[in-house]
């Protein structure tokens, strides 16, 4: 028996909206500790990793580990039927479920929707993501980072991110010209302005903006985002989900000349 009831169902809707352009189908692994999901994009350049802890759910029960193979497109269609204020419950009684039940309840419990989504069996090639002690960590407003990526992608497909003790510099070079945005440490009490840099070792890495713009669809999940970098490592972009867990995106760097 597996049942997970999320009080703020809108969080689940936002997670699926955040990843639907990146991955087509995913395996959600349910265990006693919660839900986890890991999937790569079709070009094997990016990896998304979701972890939702059982204690972040209103109700959570998972008698034995199960894997739920879902089509993101079909999941999206079902979730469109959930109101932003609904609770969302996932449920199955089978051990090898062929479908997953969804219940959407409004606040007054006066409207209850029930859907059943057919499951897929996906070969799960999961990757080992080593715990990395990143040498450059940037915490900043997710809206601000999203804006920087959007603005720079009009000049080039590739952004170079260079960190130093007191600032991070996003540089682009394209046919029309070049540009850079430098963001400094800023302990402002305004969320949108605050920038925290923890730079043990400066890094200079190059990434495809197309992927960063896809990752930034997760801005609605958290007002802050952290960029985690070490030389010769994928960039890890993390959106923490209050009291529930985190959505992490990994992007392999480009070889820059």
């Amino acid at each position: 028996m597996f049942e997970a009831k999320l009080q703020q169902g809108v969080i689940f809707k936002k997670i699926v909206d955040a990843i639907k352009d990146l991955v087509k189908s995913v395996n959600i692994d349910a265990s006693t500790s919660g839900l986890s999901m890991q999937a790569m994009d079709s070009a094997h350049v990016a990896l998304v990793s979701l972890k939702l802890n059982e204690n972040g759910f209103k109700d959570y029960r998972c008698d034995r580990p199960i894997t739920l193979g879902l089509s993101i497109e079909n999941l999206s269609k079902i979730l469109k039927c959930a109101g932003n204020d609904d609770t969302i419950t996932l449920q199955t009684d089978e051990e090898e479920p062929s479908s997953l039940k969804f219940f959407f309840e409004n606040q007054q419990a006066s409207k209850i929707s029930e859907f059943s989504l057919n499951l897929m069996s996906l070969d799960s090639e999961s990757l080992g993501i080593p715990d990395t002690d990143y040498s450059s960590v940037i915490q900043m407003s997710s809206a601000e980072f999203s804006r920087i990526c959007k603005e720079l992608s009009s000049i080039s497909e590739t952004v170079e991110i260079e960190t130093s003790k007191e600032s991070v510099k996003f540089s682009v070079q394209g046919d029309i010209g070049a540009g850079s945005i430098t963001v400094k440490n800023n302990q402002s009490d305004k969320d949108v302005d605050r920038v925290d840099l923890q730079i043990d070792q400066p890094v200079k890495l190059t990434f495809a903006l197309r992927y960063l713009n896809m990752f930034n669809k997760a801005v609605s999940l958290s007002s802050t985002v952290s960029l985690n970098m070490s030389e010769e490592n994928p960039l890890m972009v993390e959106y923490k989900i209050d009291d529930l867990g985190s959505l992490r995106f990994y992007l392999a760097p480009k070889i820059s000349d």
């Binding site: 790569m40 070009a43 094997h44 350049v45 990016a46 990896l47 090639e125 999961s126 990757l127 080992g128 993501i129 080593p130 590739t158 190059t206 495809a208 490592n233 994928p234 990994y250 992007l251 392999a252 760097p253 480009k254 070889i255 820059s256 000349d257």
Partner: peptide
């Protein structure tokens, strides 16, 4: 010219 590396270069398949 830059070229894109594959995520498999960095994370081993379990």
């Amino acid at each position: 010219q830059t070229d894109q590396r594959d995520i498999h270069l960095f994370f081993s398949i379990l």
